[in-house]
């Protein structure tokens, strides 16, 4: 059986179409790869989905009643307050997987192979961000269903729900770029796993599980300015869920900040990640 290996030797010139179109196509091909990883390793997908599910169960019911007492509200009302916090918290926990997968691509040489191809450089990384956003939609759908099962509900209609989900996916996109940048900076996937605990202060020193006015003053300030808090407060508003009245400037401008924060994070991390990608070739 002899099939020619090399066929006709035609140079791989980029076909017609703008750079942006090709960057979009390449991004989708890379995103599909990351999604296929999840499909081919269902235990990994299950593990990823288990974090938010466990969080709802643990914080909602184990801590829920106690926190409700501390906040002077019934447990059911605390869960109404809690769910939007857990949605955002789940977006933050995604950073770990993003960082590990990019660090693996650096180590394993897949990124090198991509760099030897005539593909769009930004797509090598943006594909991961797109896959993360798609995964975020899946996670949020499960959480919404689970929340509804536990008596949580959105009060302001489907339009507001979609806007809230949009803010959450935007937050995930920002965290995805943080994870991509970290993945390019760490020495390897093992290091990424060791630093994973750093996600906890990001996820919890925020208006997610405990209201900031129950925190000591020195902790309340960073918690209020945590990008997560803006998204949580904004989505609580959009879902029409229980919230303490805003007393700070960031709290009052939560909706604006829930857009500005992620945009600012991406504006910083994306160029840094691209610069780092170029430096891999030094």
């Amino acid at each position: 059986m002899t099939v020619s290996i090399s066929g006709a030797m035609t140079d791989a010139v980029t076909p017609h179409g703008s750079r942006i179109t090709w960057a979009a196509v390449d991004t989708w091909v890379v995103a599909k790869r990351h999604l296929l990883h999840l499909v081919r390793r269902p235990d990994e997908l299950l593990g990823t989905l288990m974090i938010p599910v466990m969080a709802v169960a643990m914080f909602g019911f184990v801590f829920g009643e106690a926190f409700g007492v501390a906040m002077d509200v019934p447990g059911a009302e605390y869960r109404e307050f809690l769910l939007p916090g857990l949605f955002a918290l789940t977006m933050a926990f995604g950073i770990g997987n993003t960082t590990i997968s990019i660090a693996e691509d650096v180590r394993g040489g897949v990124l090198d192979r991509m760099r030897s191809l005539p593909m769009s450089p930004v797509a090598m990384l943006a594909g991961r961000a797109l896959a993360d956003m798609i995964l975020a939609v899946v996670e949020l759908t499960i959480l919404l269903a689970l929340g509804t099962l536990f008596g949580w509900q959105a009060h302001l209609g489907i339009g507001a729900v979609i806007a809230a989900l949009g803010l959450l996916v935007l937050l995930r996109m920002a965290f995805s770029w943080v994870g991509i940048l970290l993945g390019l900076l760490v020495s390897g996937p093992e290091a990424a796993m060791k630093y994973f605990a750093l996600v906890f202060p990001l996820a919890m020193v925020a208006d997610t599980i405990v209201p900031t006015d129950l925190m000591p003053g020195w902790l309340a300030l960073p918690a209020e300015w945590n990008p997560l808090s803006s998204t949580v407060i904004a989505t609580r508003e959009l879902f029409g869920n229980t919230a303490a009245p805003a007393t700070t400037w960031v709290g009052e401008h939560a909706l604006t900040m829930a857009v500005l924060w992620p945009v600012a994070i991406i504006a910083v991390c994306l160029p840094l990640a691209m610069a780092r990608l170029r430096r891999l070739g030094r």
């Binding site: 791989a12 076909p15 390449d26």
Partner: peptide, 19 residues
């Protein structure tokens, strides 16, 4: 090559990235 993908998926992905 990508260890998690199949051989075919690897070839198709890199072919797509070759435009």
């Amino acid at each position: 090559v990508d260890g998690i993908l199949s051989g075919r998926q690897n070839l198709e992905m890199f072919a797509r990235l070759h435009r």
